[in-house]
């Protein structure tokens, strides 16, 4: 059975629907460019799969995201106008963020039907493995993009995390060696 992880409330999703996509695409592009620059091993791990087009369908938001790792591009699109892609990964935002930050296991999310994969299954696996090894941290990427406001950004992310229950920073539950 799918888990009862936090979902974006439906009214919030509906309120986001009319917003223009260009600013969101630009923001996603900045974060993606930075992540690929900071984690060059991701492309090495992806190998030939870096040329695939990954459609990330965030089911509790009105957008789908297209990630093309090789050219380092990411853009937002209306769900009804999804661009061509090789593989589609679908699930709520909370699970994508938890997987990205090492808090949840991608296979377990798939087994429980919280996450759906359609298309090139190999490419989906390669992306999951490459991102898992990169130990990404969205809060730190946003802080790095915020220049002199880095600590304010970290604080804002921590507040947002507490308020929404979403994983916005890298999980390292066993940071201290036992």
């Amino acid at each position: 059975m799918p888990s009862d992880a936090p979902r974006i409330p439906r009214p919030v999703g509906m309120a986001l629907r009319p917003l223009p996509l260009l600013p969101l695409s630009r923001f996603l592009q900045s974060v993606t460019t930075r992540m690929i620059k900071d984690h060059p091993d991701m492309l090495r791990r992806l190998g030939d799969y870096a040329g695939r087009r990954f459609l990330i369908d965030i089911t509790d938001l009105p957008y789908v995201l297209l990630l093309c790792p090789a050219p380092g591009r990411m853009s937002a699109h209306r769900r009804g106008a999804a661009p061509e892609h090789d593989v589609r990964l679908a699930g709520p935002l909370s699970h994508f963020l938890a997987m990205m930050h090492g808090a949840e296991d991608g296979d377990a999310l798939f087994f429980s039907r919280d996450l759906t994969v359609e298309g090139d299954t190999s490419a989906a696996l390669a992306l999951r493995n490459a991102m898992d090894d990169a130990e990404l941290d969205l809060t730190e990427e946003l802080a790095a993009l915020s220049g002199p406001f880095a600590s304010a950004m970290r604080e804002a992310c921590a507040r947002a995390e507490r308020f929404t229950g979403l994983h916005l920073h890298r999980t390292d539950p066993f940071g201290e060696l036992i």
């Binding site: 997987m99 090492g102 296991d105 999980t171 066993f174």
Partner: peptide, 13 residues
């Protein structure tokens, strides 16, 4: 070995 670091951390602990 095909699973994520989240799986490894939880199971090993």
């Amino acid at each position: 070995r095909q699973r994520s670091r989240a799986y490894v951390a939880q199971v090993v602990r």
